[in-house]
C-alpha cells in the first residue's frame, strides 16, 4: 500500500515537473532558432544559432535593462527586508489591541489587486515626479510587498522564544541591539524566503514597470522585451533569448537560497 502510494506520488511529481519544464524547453528551442526556420517548436535546430541573443541584447538595450533590474530589485528587496522585519517585530511581540489592528490592516492590504488602483497611483506618481525614476517604482514595490513580508516575519518571529529577548535585555542590550544582534540572525530562513518571493516578483514585474518605467534608459528587462511584440509583428526568437538571459540571475539566486526558502516559508506560514 505504502509502496503504491509512493509510486503515485512519484508519478504526480514527475507530471508536475513536466508541466513546468515544458515551457522552459520550448523557450530554449525557440531562442536558438532562426526566424525563417519553420521546423516544429519541439525540436532543437541542428545548427548553432546565437543571433537571437545578440539581437535581443542589442535591440532591447539589455545592458541598460539589466542595470535597471539590478538597481530596482536590490534596493526594493533590501528596503522590504529592513522595513518589513522592523515593523513585524513589535507586531509579533506586543499583541496589544492597537497592534492587532495594525497587523490586520497590513494583512488586509493583501487583498487589494494592485491594478485596480492603477490610475490614481499613476496620477500620484506624476504629481510627486516619480515617473521614469527608479525611486518611484521602488516606492511602489516596497509598498505592495510589505504586507506579505510583514505577514511572514510576524509569523516567524512568533516562533522565537520570548525568553531570548528577556535574556538579552538582562544582559544590557537595547531594543535595536536586541533586534539586529540577536533576532535578525535567527530570521535567516524567513529572510531567504522574502528575498526569493519579493526578489522574483520585482525582477519579473511587468504590470507596474510598463506604466512607470517607460523611458528607454530606465525600463526593465520585461518592458524592453515586450517592445518586440507589436500589433502586426513579433520577434518571438528575440523575446525567447532575452527572457532566457533575464531569467538566469533569478535561477542562480534561487539555487543559492532554496535551502532556506522551504523552511522559512513553512515556519512562517504555519504559526501566525
Amino acid at each position: 500500500m505504502g509502496r503504491n502510494r509512493k509510486a503515485w506520488a512519484t508519478i504526480a511529481s514527475l507530471a508536475i515537473c513536466l508541466v513546468h519544464i515544458l515551457p522552459f524547453y520550448i523557450l530554449l528551442t525557440t531562442s536558438f532558432k532562426a526566424s525563417d526556420d519553420l521546423s516544429s517548436k519541439w525540436v532543437f535546430p541542428g545548427y548553432l544559432y546565437l543571433d537571437n541573443f545578440s539581437n535581443a541584447w542589442q535591440e532591447a538595450n539589455m545592458l541598460t535593462a539589466f542595470r535597471s533590474n539590478v538597481v530596482v530589485t536590490a534596493i526594493s528587496v533590501a528596503l522590504i527586508i529592513v522595513v518589513g522585519s522592523v515593523a513585524a517585530y513589535p507586531l509579533a511581540r506586543y499583541q496589544t489591541r492597537w497592534n492587532k489592528f495594525i497587523y490586520a490592516l497590513f494583512v488586509s492590504a493583501l487583498i487589494v489587486p494592485p491594478l485596480t488602483i492603477l490610475v490614481p497611483l499613476y496620477k500620484f506618481m506624476v504629481d510627486i515626479g516619480g515617473m521614469n525614476h527608479y525611486w518611484g517604482i521602488i516606492l511602489l514595490f516596497v509598498t505592495f510587498n510589505l504586507p506579505m513580508t510583514i505577514f511572514l516575519y510576524t509569523g516567524f518571529i512568533g516562533t522565537i522564544p520570548r525568553e531570548l529577548d528577556e535574556a538579552a535585555m538582562i544582559d544590557g542590550a537595547g531594543r535595536f541591539e536586541l533586534f539586529f544582534r540577536i533576532l535578525l540572525p535567527l530570521l535567516k530562513p524567513i529572510t531567504a524566503t522574502v528575498v526569493i518571493l519579493t526578489g522574483v516578483a520585482v525582477w519579473n514585474d511587468y504590470q507596474f514597470s510598463v506604466f512607470f518605467l517607460q523611458h528607454p534608459h530606465t525600463r526593465t528587462i520585461t518592458v524592453a522585451l515586450a517592445s518586440f511584440f507589436g500589433q502586426y509583428n513579433s520577434n518571438i526568437g528575440w523575446v525567447a533569448a532575452g527572457s532566457l538571459m533575464g531569467a538566469l540571475p533569478m535561477i542562480v539566486l534561487y539555487l543559492f537560497l532554496q535551502r532556506y526558502f522551504i523552511s522559512g516559508l513553512a515556519s512562517g506560514a504555519i504559526k501566525g
Binding site: 542595470r67 535597471s68 539590478v70 538597481v71 536590490a74 534596493i75 528587496v77 533590501a78 527586508i81 529592513v82 506624476v126 515626479g129 515617473m131 521614469n132 525614476h133 527608479y134 544582534r181 535578525l184 540572525p185 535567516k188 529572510t191 517607460q214 523611458h215 534608459h217 530606465t218
Partner: peptide, 30 residues
C-alpha cells in the same frame, strides 16, 4: 553568519547606489 547577511545587504545597497549613480534619471516629463 550574521556578518554574512549584513555584508550581503550592505553590498547590495552599495552596488545599487553605484548603479543609480551611473544611470540617467531622465524622465519623459521633466
Amino acid at each position: 553568519m550574521r556578518k554574512t547577511w549584513i555584508t550581503v545587504i550592505a553590498l547590495l545597497l552599495i552596488v545599487s547606489t553605484a548603479l543609480v549613480g551611473c544611470s540617467q534619471r531622465s524622465g519623459g516629463n521633466d
